[in-house]
Structure formats: structure tokens, C-alpha cells
């Protein structure tokens, strides 16, 4: 009993300090995300491209979901399958919540990546993944909006694409929140998505 009171008094004494700390937190929050957090984005504000079925999609279509936008190309034998396999893993790690996580794949090689092939490719990972195939001009504009770098590089008989391998993650309100680097593990990525989902959790009674 005495011990309990002591603890309580001690805790009360610490209260102002705790308040002070929490006030500080608002100014510079702890780096709790594994990925790079984005607070006020001056990029990635708009996305408007036709999907593999030819419908024009925008970020507003995905409200209520955490969405990861990834730029890649189908002849990429390495980082694109790695990134998309990681996304599938993230979805699995999220369990039931994984239903509210989706990847949007934007091809940076629209000359070779036709909507049909992009659809088949994404289906090999997860049929819920959305593929966007614009005209070369539309792709250039989108990449610029996302500050994504991509460039055609000749290699032997054909060409390859250098490209940014970052996944840009939006919260369920359509706000750009994270830049997920290629090297981040599926576990860390999943933890970040879980946090974003909690940040915009749908209001449920008794919660």
C-alpha cells in the first residue's frame, strides 16, 4: 500500500515533466516509422493515369486504403520482382488488415509494357495490384510530379530503364506519408503500414 502511494506520488511529481516531453514531441516527433516520413509533400500530390483496363484512375479512387505507388518496368529482372514480392509479403503480414493495402504499379516503359502484359504480370503477384500505363508524355509528367528518376539506357541489342525504386505510400485519406526505400524489409514496411492504418482508422463504436 505504502509502496503504491509512493509510486503514485512519484508519478505525480513526474507529470509536469511528462507533459513537457509530450509538448516537445509535437514539435519533433520520434522517428517511429522505418521508412522516411513525409509530413507536407510538395510532390506526389496528383496521380492521373489509365489503368490496365483503360479507366483513368486517380488517388481519390483509393480512399480508405493505404496505397503504395511504385514505378518500374516489366523487363526489370531484379528490383521490380523484389519490390512486388515484398509488397505481397507486407499484405500477408498485415493479415486481415492487408485488405486495406494496395500497390499501384506505374510503368516507366510504356513503349514495351502494354496494358495486357502489365495486367498479367501484376496478377502473378496479386490480382488486387493496380497497373497504370500512360503515354510516354503522361508517364514523364507523372514521374516529374513524384520526382522519380527514370532513363532509357541502351544495353547490347536493346535497352533497359534506370529508375527510382522507392515506394510512395499514402494514408487512407490520400495523403502522401512515406517514402519506402528499396532496401527496407517486408516486416518494417508492414509495421509502418499498420501505423498508417491506425492513424486513419475508421471510427468504430466502442473504440
Amino acid at each position: 500500500m505504502t509502496k503504491y502511494y509512493l509510486h503514485r506520488r512519484f508519478a505525480l511529481a513526474l507529470l509536469p515533466l511528462a507533459l513537457l516531453l509530450s509538448a516537445c514531441e509535437k514539435v519533433s516527433p520520434p522517428a517511429a516509422f522505418h521508412a522516411t516520413e513525409i509530413r507536407e509533400a510538395s510532390f506526389g500530390r496528383e496521380l492521373r493515369l489509365p489503368d490496365t483496363e483503360g479507366r483513368v484512375r486517380t488517388l481519390a479512387d483509393f480512399r480508405g486504403e493505404v496505397v503504395g505507388v511504385y514505378f518500374g518496368f516489366l523487363q526489370c529482372p531484379d528490383v521490380c520482382p523484389t519490390a512486388l514480392s515484398r509488397a505481397v509479403e507486407v499484405k500477408q503480414l498485415l493479415g486481415e488488415e492487408g485488405k486495406r493495402f494496395r500497390i499501384i504499379f506505374v510503368t516507366v516503359d510504356p513503349e514495351r509494357d502494354t496494358p495486357e502484359v502489365v495486367r498479367a504480370y501484376l496478377d502473378a503477384f496479386d490480382p488486387s495490384f493496380v497497373g497504370l500505363v500512360g503515354t510516354p508524355e503522361e508517364v514523364a509528367r507523372t514521374a516529374e510530379e513524384f520526382r522519380v528518376y527514370y532513363r532509357k539506357v541502351p544495353t547490347g541489342s536493346s535497352y533497359t530503364m534506370d529508375h527510382t525504386a522507392t515506394t510512395f505510400v499514402y494514408n487512407a485519406n490520400g495523403k502522401l506519408r512515406l517514402a519506402v526505400p528499396h532496401a527496407l524489409s517486408a516486416e518494417a514496411f508492414a509495421a509502418d503500414v499498420r501505423r498508417l492504418l491506425a492513424e486513419t482508422a475508421p471510427a468504430e463504436p466502442g473504440r
Binding site: D78, V79, Y149, T155, D162, H163, T164, A165, H182
Partner: peptide
């Protein structure tokens, strides 16, 4: 066509050569 390639990350940009 068969080629020997290397993939490198330059920052978060992937390059294949």
C-alpha cells in the same frame, strides 16, 4: 540474346548494366 548483367543501387535508383 544472352548478356551478363549487374544491378546496382545508386541511392534509391536501380541501374542495370
Amino acid at each position: 540474346v544472352v548478356e551478363i548483367h549487374e544491378m546496382v543501387m545508386d541511392g534509391d535508383v536501380m541501374k542495370m548494366r
